[in-house]
Amino acid sequence: MLTVTGITGGYGDLRVLWGVDARVGAGKITVVLGRNGAGKTSLLSAIAGLLPTVSEGTVELAGQDLSGTRAHRRIRAGLALVQENKRVFRGRSVEENLLLGGYTIPGRGLRATARREALEQAYERFPMLRERRRIPAGSLSGGQQQMLAIGQALMPGPKLLMLDEPSAGLAPSIVNEVLGMVAALREEGLSILLVEQRVEHALAIADDVAVMENGRIIAAGPKAEFDDGALIREVYLGRTGEQMNTGNR
């Protein structure tokens, strides 16, 4: 569904991505793992066309070349991005947020049929949002805001959904709910690129895995290749497990 090759870029002169390749199969979940600062968020930004500087590389979605286009074109082409922490427009109501999520739905004005239908679908998926449609999004709890953000991203019916740490700052019970929702979306046929720090949770729903370090992909492949648990030590707990224990001060 999504093929990324050789993305190199960053913020002005500061490079954070160095020739990154990645792909997401149709109807699959690819999980990107890596420590903070490894470049995971920048990779999603680069795919969405939001990274300030991209000097090289191509992005292709469902056979359509999106390289060099600006963010709004990519969203129109069927990409969706749920950013970390910048989840919703806090000052706007829940319903306005959803309508903004459906900005690219064709049809004029707020009352266009297609937009109303997508809104109805979002409310069916998240009944909790319907109850709170008039209140400002900023006053929702963290978990509710995350659901709203996903609801927003789903409004235009995207082909590929990118999620940046959807579980960040959420209580464990809600984490399961959010990631369960992600797994359910795959069952509906959506392709998903997931950046997640909760390694075990993420692996539980992954089809493919890519591991990033210092702006590069250091390992990628089907989940089975990472199943022996070495991954947690390698990526999450640090360089190697041995060092962790023999390290002296």
């Binding site: 939001l50 709004h72 910048k86 000052g91 706007r92 903004l100 999520g101 004005g109």
Partner: peptide
């Protein structure tokens, strides 16, 4: 209006607005 909302949204957060296809 949709465009009015989009304008308020991009005033609040340009990047997030771009990520909604605005």
């Amino acid at each position: 209006s949709l465009i009015g909302l989009a304008s308020l949204a991009s005033a609040e957060d340009r990047d997030a607005a771009s990520a909604r296809g605005i």
